[in-house]
Amino acid sequence: MRDAVGDGAVNGDEPSGKDLLYEQLKAYEGRPATTSGVGKDTVNEPMIRHWCEAMGDANPAYPAVAPPTMLQAWTMGGLSGHTGRTAAYDELFALLDGAGCTAVVATDCEQEYLRDLRPGDRITFDAVIESVSERKKTALGTGYFVTTRMDVRGGGELAGTHRFRILKYAPGARTKTPAGGTGARATGGGRPGARRPRPVVNRDNAGFWDGVARHQLLIQRCTSCSALRFPWLPGCNACGSPEWDTVAASGAGTVYSYVVMHHPAFPAFDPPYAVGLIELAEGVRMVSNVIGVPYDKVRVGLPVSLEFLRVDEDLELPVFRGSGG
């Protein structure tokens, strides 16, 4: 079955000839998404402090300056949105929705920092639809990647650029289990035969994954100031020293915060399921699945204990079992 856009359809059989939908979408490249946007708050110390506490960032440079990665936070409009938003983005989404690309997932973001943002800076910004990809087939479904570029200014000076990329796609069909469910829960994978995404292992975190293979959850410890840190980093974010060793976590912790994942569906997962920010007994925090209790029973402060879950023949992951599970 073909969509009303003819050769631009994304559902059904692979179309032949030109992708007419893509030609329509391509016309939106370069069009403004927001003009003369203004941040609802000036850069301020309370927001910087809350951010640093949530991220576990004890860098002494803050809050005299804002962490660079807060760049997008100052532009967020909340539920009421921002003035300056143009119709172009909504029109683009309407075209995609009309072609069956009704689902959306954020895929990645890129930031470039040009100057520090300091308390008192008034934030202004402009955004443009930078690019729309050709039609792509993904594990989630077939659709188009849309990249938006936002230029952020502080006190009238360009402070940084934020690129945000989404996939707007037509969801693929999900396999049902005989009991009427949609496959195993996130603890054991979703669709039969589907594999979890592979973690990115590099020279900075290879030691962590070596520890997981030995059923140890290793935390970095700075050998200069003894500060513990997680996730693994090449240097200490407290004193800057590049020298470190490791300590093994006891496995005890509590749920510091959490989300319940409902959408989008990914073949190796079966929502809804809980993902927690776990505060370990050692004081550092990490993100992982909360298992052993119903997703709607997970709560802040729930005691959890470490387990290692084998999800396929060559991937084992640290997860946390809630008390009572």
Results as ranks from 00 to 15, higher is better:
residue 251 G to W: 03
residue 74 W to D: 03
residue 75 T to W: 00
residue 86 T to I: 05
residue 128 V to E: 14
residue 186 A to C: 08
residue 85 R to C: 12
residue 93 F to W: 13
residue 105 V to C: 10
residue 125 F to E: 09
residue 155 G to T: 03
residue 127 A to L: 04
residue 27 A to C: 02
residue 19 D to S: 01
residue 257 S to N: 14
residue 77 G to R: 05
residue 134 E to S: 14
residue 226 S to N: 12
residue 204 D to P: 02
residue 42 T to F: 06
residue 68 P to E: 08
residue 39 G to Q: 07
residue 277 L to W: 00
residue 144 Y to I: 02
residue 4 A to R: 15
residue 225 C to H: 07
residue 180 G to V: 03
residue 280 L to S: 04
residue 266 F to W: 10
residue 281 A to K: 11
residue 204 D to H: 15
residue 12 G to T: 02
residue 296 D to K: 08
residue 181 G to D: 09
residue 38 V to L: 08
residue 266 F to R: 14
residue 226 S to L: 09
residue 296 D to S: 02
residue 189 G to W: 12
residue 9 A to F: 09
residue 89 Y to A: 04
residue 101 C to V: 02
residue 171 P to T: 02
residue 151 D to Q: 13
residue 61 A to P: 01
residue 132 V to A: 03
residue 41 D to T: 12
residue 24 Q to T: 11
residue 214 R to C: 01
residue 201 V to T: 07
residue 279 E to D: 13
residue 143 G to M: 08
residue 25 L to D: 04
residue 47 M to G: 10
residue 78 G to T: 08
residue 54 A to S: 14
residue 201 V to Q: 04
residue 276 G to C: 08
residue 28 Y to W: 09
residue 297 K to G: 08
residue 50 H to M: 15
residue 268 A to Q: 10
residue 305 S to E: 12
residue 62 Y to N: 03
residue 25 L to I: 06
residue 267 P to D: 00
residue 317 L to H: 09
residue 310 R to M: 01
residue 189 G to Y: 14
residue 258 Y to F: 15
residue 241 S to A: 08
residue 122 R to G: 07
residue 124 T to K: 04
residue 55 M to F: 11
residue 202 N to L: 02
residue 152 V to M: 07
residue 304 V to T: 11
residue 61 A to Y: 06
